[in-house]
Design a protein around this nucleic acid. Structure first.
Lengths: 172, 172
DNA sequence: TTGCTTGCAAAAATTTTGCATCTAG
DNA sequence: CTAGATGCAAAATTTTTGCAAGCAA
């Protein structure tokens, strides 16, 4: 599962006049160890690092997330929760996936579909630009919310009873 | 092009115990008059309203955008510019479209592909949830940025020389 | 009337930046 | 050494909220 070794990261960075610092290495390793299907916000990553007794400033976290996303190592997800989430970018057909998210409780499901990347590649070619990422986001309302009588009966902060088991230090 | 009349908006709102206010009507009309392919952030919408001498508070703008997106009248776009954008949600095959965006200069291209909505519908059915929106976002780097030597040679605030003609009061 | 809405200002949440200091190459 | 990176605190951006007053149904 080690898709980017510290060394290949170093090469990537040095090619662009950037440096491999312990902070960057640590942050990448958090993503490497994240179980498939999870993604982190800057704040969540920062908390994980703190739980691991790593001293990395929040601004460094933000700067590193940007850098790695720009390089193409991370993928930026916009799941409409008020902040971006990040995950490893695995552009090969095998790992490439997309998201279905409930706009009420933010539960997310992953799915794969090879034809999407093909469509993205076609468009990119037509526009004469270079592909970085291609993600389908399906917004929906979950069964539980519908059962509660969404949308009229569901207060905007309502969330599935069971869905409160999330993140913070979810490294497998 | 009048897809939602004031009256059908009223019905939609009243069904959910909400009211049709002049502010909501005005905001919807801005989107109706926006030329196809444009989308607005809360701030941009607020400015347009001001230019039209409408007195609508920024919080009302935010509240209305949320409401209309929740109802399914607007579509929330996440084009990675630091804030959400909104456009009319036209879920029929004919108007449904997707976005290709340059992460460097934020230029966006629209495209249609019927198979995407089909994929979304399939996933939604499988997950047993109700579809609200289905959008493919392709992130790429534009030709101009590549020519400048992206990524190593391009400062992160660089933008295509010509691409500075945007928004603010772009109503056609 | 009643309870949903608004506008304002204040607060919250998220992200960015300036700068002195540190460090990878 | 030297340009890039860090950490902190301060600032900027974007969005949300409390509350008194207004207005749609």
């Amino acid at each position: 599962m080690n898709l980017y070794s510290a060394n290949s990261l170093k090469v990537e960075l040095n090619q662009r006049g950037c440096r491999l610092t312990p902070q960057r290495e640590t942050i990448l390793s958090v993503f490497q160890n994240l179980r498939q299907g999870n993604h982190l916000s800057a704040e969540e990553l920062y908390n994980i690092l703190h739980n691991q007794r790593e001293k990395i400033g929040l601004s460094t976290v933000y700067r590193t997330l940007h850098l790695l996303a720009r390089i193409g190592i991370l993928r930026e997800l916009e799941l409409a929760e008020g902040h971006k989430h990040y995950e490893l970018n695995l552009p090969d057909m095998h790992h490439h996936h997309h998201h279905l998210v409930c706009i009420q409780c933010h539960k997310t499901f992953e799915f794969s579909d090879e034809s999407i990347l093909k469509i993205g590649k076609k468009q990119v070619e037509k526009a004469g630009v270079e592909l970085l990422d291609c993600q389908l986001t399906v917004r929906a309302v979950c069964l539980e919310a519908l059962r509660e009588g969404w949308p009229s009966m569901v207060p905007s902060n309502w969330s599935c009873p069971r869905s409160h088991s999330e993140m913070e230090d979810e490294i497998s």
